[in-house]
Amino acid sequence: MLEYIAKRIVQAVIILLGVSFLSFSLLYIFPGDPAELIFLVNSGGVPPTPQELEELRAELGLNKPLLIQYGNWLSKILKGDFGNSWNTGRPVIYEISQRFRASAELFLLSFTISAIISFILGILAAMNKDKVIDHICRTISLLGISIPNFFFSLMLIWIFSVELHLFPSFGYGKLENYILPVTAWVFSGISIKSRFVRATMLEILNQEYIIAAKAKGLPERVIVLKHALRNALIPILTYFSTSIGHLVLGSIMIEVVFAWPGVARFFIFSVFTRDFPVVQAFVLLSSVAFISVNLIVDLSYALIDPRVRYER
């Protein structure tokens, strides 16, 4: 088991380094002089003189070799210094932390609800294959992955906010503000997850040990809940954790549509205003979050799966 844990942690670190390097190099992907571009953005379009350019380069350390720049950047990042927002002048980390709570609330609420619903739905669909509930589950899934979440959100707003005046279309703080965004999120969240739960359960229900359990005369409830589910939990948990990555995507569109004061909306705003440090930080941080969650889930594997826990 320890070998497994060590291996996973090392892998995660390598990937983190790779992701950080990619974020770092975002500055260099466009041809042309990064210094010039930074100057242009900050000056509002006024081109720099050669002297100003040299000064800027020295100031930002753009003269030094790439790896050294990367090293400097990385050491700052590890201390939590992502630079200052070009818009507000305040530290990026501050701007992000200010808005973090709103995003986290939306995310956690929606993720929990969609996880529970898709879990139940998926299991019911697998147990009742080809019957009504299965068709309902599969239809909802199909619609959920085909209808873009921003369109669904706008539809919800149009129906419930504009036409029926039931819920507000934007705003933050009161319970009613949460209803539409969470609904939109949950709808697309259920679609991918319940499919996977269903598929995993079906695969497991075809296994030999399930037939063996049936041969013992055990009640169906026991076979599904004890024998099948415990095997299904492992892949399902992994999948749910990887789907967190997709949920960040969902966050972006939903926060924009509902004008939710969260991190993702700030990211979009920063992209438009060319606030590069924020953009870079967001790319890096969203990956770090994703990698961390994956790592935690993988490590908990070691506890849940006896084949890993008690390696011969």
Binding site: I15, L22, R274, F290
Partner: peptide
């Protein structure tokens, strides 16, 4: 590893960042 690295960054985030940066030029 390269595949893993790309998988770790949410697709849309990178798409948006790239479009944002490249559209400058």
């Amino acid at each position: 590893r390269i595949i893993d690295i790309f998988l770790s960054i949410p697709d849309l985030v990178l798409n948006i960042a790239l479009v944002g940066i490249l559209s400058l030029s």
